[in-house]
Design a binder for these strands. Structure first.
Length: 416
DNA sequence: TCTGGGGTCCTAGGACCC
DNA sequence: TCTGGGGTCCTAGGACCC
């Protein structure tokens, strides 16, 4: 039996833990670069703010309804997320961290599931300040569905029993089922399947023929047959991408190169933290797709490396060679990124018959990582990333809150 | 003027092998 | 007129998730 506990409007709730003036006030948190709304408080939803709505469309609401806007502060959200995981680990024997705001828990054998779910919510709220909802079901898909239903107000919904499932699925919109996206939702609706119950009861051979094994699995899960296990250990990443939209359009190729070097260093740090090495690397850079009247260009290239590496210097050098000569004059680049591919654990690497495997200078890289962990990101690094105070490509974060829980200088002070 | 970032899996088709 | 059977690997595209 699965329970899914999910933070309500998570990013907004995380901002509200420390910023009292945001409570009970319509609030949104933006994507990077302050582009669009990615989290909305109940009050903001009531004002009609849509998921992903561009920020510039929200100006009237900011002016007339006091809509509050915050830039995404992932250091804060990630830290609060870890705290919630630790709280839950103290309560359940098995747990899967599914996303920054969702955790699946094994609640098999618990007699009063609803009371236990209420206990989890209360404890998470008291210890972390984040309100949440709990959905319970015999499969992950049903637990997700129960969680969605719980958001309607009850806070906890238990779909362990078939009668409860039947009642809930009968009116549950197909578009809200986990694993059904906009495309499939439109096709299913066209076939007369509008609710979760109708998908559950559709002929399996039809679902298999039209949508493949993925949706067929979802159908089985809706029928109460578990097809997706609890994943207690996160599988190793296969690739790591670091990409950003720039704060403004950039025509200077040296500036794009600096941005790519910065992203490469970030990606390599993430990779080393996971104990992985890359056997391939790629980059891309696009002009501003939202300005079709401007000249457009998109550059990208990737290569396999002769030997896998986790050394930032080698990777920065590779990216620099890849991009050289691939950008066009007179193009304003708006977004770029770096991809580390074919990731593996170094102990699993295939050896090279003619050259010893060189995964890079471990001591140098671990010293670099240790310095940056102790004194803050960017304390020590590579010259190729540039040391300009404020590069043109830097993303906009006009309403960034302090890193209350992860930076000593940002710790809130209590005034007596 | 202003529009995010980071992932995974499945499938079909082509190239190639014996 | 007849023209096999069985397999792997890679890639691109399409779908999904948060």
């Amino acid at each position: 039996m699965f329970a899914l506990i999910d933070g309500n409007n998570f990013y907004v709730s995380a901002e509200r833990v420390f910023s009292v003036k945001l409570r009970n006030v319509p609030t949104v948190v933006c994507s990077n670069n302050d582009g669009c709304a990615v989290a909305r408080s109940q009050e903001a939803k009531a004002l009609g703010v849509r998921m992903g709505q561009p920020l510039h469309e929200l100006k009237p609401l900011i002016r007339d309804h006091g809509l509050q806007v915050r830039s995404a502060n992932f250091a804060l959200y990630g830290d609060i997320s870890h705290r919630i995981v630790e709280i839950l680990r103290g309560e359940v024997p098995r747990l899967e961290v599914y996303s920054i705001d969702e955790n699946f828990c094994d609640v098999t054998g618990i007699r009063d599931r609803e009371a236990f779910a209420r206990h989890l919510r209360d404890k998470v709220l008291r210890w972390s300040g984040i309100p949440s909802c709990v959905g319970i079901g015999p499969t992950k898909t049903l637990a997700k569905l129960a969680n969605k239903a719980a958001k309607a107000g009850a806070g906890v919904v238990d779909l362990a029993e078939p009668e409860a499932q039947a009642r809930c699925l009968a009116t549950f919109p197909i578009a809200d089922v986990w694993g059904v996206g906009p495309r499939w939702s439109a096709r299913l609706t066209g076939m007369g399947i509008h609710t979760a119950a109708q998908l559950r009861d559709a002929p399996t051979d039809l679902v298999l023929k039209e949508f493949g094994v993925v949706l067929t699995r979802t159908q089985r899960e809706l029928q109460g047959h578990p097809c997706v296990e609890l994943e207690e250990v996160e599988p190793d990443r296969k690739q790591i991408v670091v990409s950003r939209s720039f704060g403004e359009r950039v025509t200077d190729h040296a500036a794009v190169a600096q941005a790519l070097a910065t992203f490469t260093v970030r990606a390599a740090e993430k990779m080393r933290r996971r104990g992985l090495v890359a056997a391939g690397v790629g980059f891309f850079a696009h002009s501003d797709v939202f300005r079709p009247e401007l000249p457009q260009h998109s550059a990208s290239r990737s290569v396999s490396l002769p030997t896998a590496t986790a050394d930032s210097r080698l990777l920065v050098g590779m990216v620099d060679r890849l991009m050289r000569g691939r950008l066009k004059e007179g193009i304003g680049y708006k977004k770029a990124g770096v991809v580390l591919m074919d990731l593996a654990r170094p102990e699993h690497l295939q050896g090279d018959l003619f050259a010893p495997a060189i995964v890079g200078n471990d001591k140098l890289m671990s010293t670099l990582d240790a310095i940056n962990a102790k004194f803050g990101r960017g304390t020590a690094g590579l010259g190729a990333t540039g040391w300009a105070k404020k590069p043109a490509w830097q993303m906009r974060q006009r309403n960034l809150s302090p890193c209350y829980t992860t930076r000593l200088s940002d710790i809130p002070r209590a005034m007596c």
